[in-house]
Design a protein around this nucleic acid. Structure first.
Lengths: 224, 224
DNA sequence: TAGATTGTTAATCGATTAACAATC
DNA sequence: TAGATTGTTAATCGATTAACAATC
C-alpha cells in the first residue's frame, strides 16, 4: 500500500493537467508493451505502438511526452523501461488492496478474476448485506458483513472499492464506502453515483457497452 | 432481430456523422431517463438531466438535437417519449439475440446478468472450447461446442457476440466470430483484437478501469 | 401574457495531427 | 556518416459552452 503521491513523476500541480483521454491511453500502452515484452521485443517505436492500437505515431509520442522524455531518438522506447515508468505514473508499481462489495453473480466472478492480480490489485475482502452469504469464503476470500466495512477499510488503509451490488442499493453503499474513507469506486451498478468531488468513480455498465455496439452495427459505420 | 437500418432516425449517410462521445452519452441519457420515469417524472429539462449526469444543459440539448427536435420549448423533454426515441436510435427498441463465448468465471456471471435483458439483449447460446463444459445448461442457456458457432450465428441471424475467453484464445476466437458473420464484439479479454474495419469491437478491461482509478486517487484530483 | 425552455449559431476551448530540428 | 526516431511547435480539426431568438 502507501499510495501517497511522494516521488511520483506526474507533473506537479500547477502545470498543465494531463487530459483524461491521455491517461486512458496510458493503460492501453502499458497493456500493449507488456505483450511486446512477452513476445521478446526490447524496444518499440511510436509508429509500432500506434499501429498496434490504431493511433498515430504522433499521438503516441505526445501522450508519453506528457510524463517525461522516455524515448531514445533513433531507437524508440525500451519496452521494459517504459512499462516500469507507466506503472509508476498509474500508481500500479505497488499492489493496491481493494475491497469488493456484493457477492452476487458478478461479484463472485470478479473475486475469481485473475486479471486484477497481474496488474497490481488484490481483493483483500468481500462484503455482502445478505447474512446468509456472510462467513463463507469465495476463492479464498472471506465474505464479511457490511458492518465490518469501516473497520476493514481503515485498518488496512484501503483506498479503492469495487461495487457490485444491485442497483437499488448502490447509492447507499457508496455513501458508506465514502464514509469509511474510500477514495475510488469501480461501480458496476447501472446507476449514476452521487459522491463528493474528491471521490472518484469509474462506471462499468455492461448494458451500455452492448448498446454502443448495437448502434455501431445498426449504422454499419466502417471504422476509420 | 431484423436489425436493419430501415426507417432509423439517424442522419442519413452524407450528413455530419455523430461523434462517438455523443453516442456514449446517449446511453447515459437513456439510463437516467428510465430512472426519472420510474420515479414518476413525466418531463425533464436539459438542466435537470445535465445535473444528474454532471453535464451542462447546453451539452444535453446539443447531443439530443443531433437526432431530432425531441424537446418542447417551455416544457422540456417528455421522458417516455425520449426513451422510446433513444432506444430506436441505439437500435434497442427490439431485442438483439447475442452469443457468449467462454463460460469461465466471467462468462458464467454474464450469463446470469439480468441487466442485458432489461435493455434489449438476450443471450441465446453460450460456447466453450472445453468439451467438459459443453452440454451443460447455465442459467437455462445451452453450452455448445465452438464448432457449432457458425451454424448458430447464421441460423439465428446473430450480429453481436460477447467474448469472455482467456486472452491467448481471444484473437483466434474473434476471427471465428467474424468468419461466422458477427459484426460486433464485446471483448472482455485484455488484448487488442485485430479485425476487419467493418467489425466493431468494444473492449472492457477490468484491470484498466482499476488503473484509471488508481491514477485518479494517486493524483488526488478533485473533479470539476 | 409572462415564464420556461428549446434548438442553433458563434465563440471558446481542447485535442489531434503534421512537420521538423535535435538526437542517437 | 546515414538512417531512424524522438520531443515539440504550429496548424488543424473537433467538441464544448455561452448566448439568444423562437416557441410553447
Amino acid at each position: 500500500m502507501s499510495q501517497t503521491e511522494e516521488n511520483s513523476p506526474q507533473p506537479s500541480s500547477g502545470e498543465t493537467p494531463v487530459p483524461q483521454a491521455v491517461v486512458n491511453r496510458l493503460s492501453l500502452y502499458l497493456r500493449e508493451l507488456q505483450h511486446l515484452v512477452r513476445d521478446g521485443n526490447e524496444t518499440a517505436s511510436s509508429t509500432q505502438i500506434g499501429k498496434l492500437l490504431g493511433f498515430t505515431d504522433a499521438q503516441v509520442r505526445k501522450d508519453l511526452a506528457y510524463f517525461g522524455p522516455f524515448g531514445y531518438p533513433g531507437v524508440g522506447y525500451r519496452c521494459q523501461e517504459l512499462i516500469d515508468a507507466i506503472k509508476k505514473i498509474l500508481g500500479t508499481n505497488q499492489v493496491w488492496p481493494v475491497v469488493l462489495i456484493g457477492t452476487g453473480n458478478l461479484g463472485r466472478a470478479l473475486l475469481g478474476y485473475r486479471g486484477f492480480g497481474n496488474q497490481g490489485f488484490r481483493v483483500v475482502a468481500a462484503f455482502d448485506a445478505d447474512a446468509g452469504k456472510v462467513g463463507r469464503k469465495i476463492d479464498g476470500i472471506d465474505v464479511l458483513p457490511l458492518d465490518d466495512l469501516k473497520k476493514t477499510i481503515e485498518s488496512q488503509n484501503i483506498r479503492i472499492a469495487i461495487l457490485a451490488v444491485p442497483s437499488p442499493a448502490a447509492q447507499l453503499v457508496a455513501e458508506k464506502l465514502v464514509e469509511a474513507g474510500i477514495s475510488g469506486i469501480l461501480n458496476f451498478a447501472p446507476v449514476t453515483l452521487t459522491v463528493s468531488k474528491d471521490v472518484h468513480v469509474v462506471g462499468v455498465d455492461l448494458a451500455i457497452e452492448l448498446e454502443q455496439l448495437a448502434y455501431a452495427v445498426v449504422n454499419r459505420q466502417a471504422r476509420e
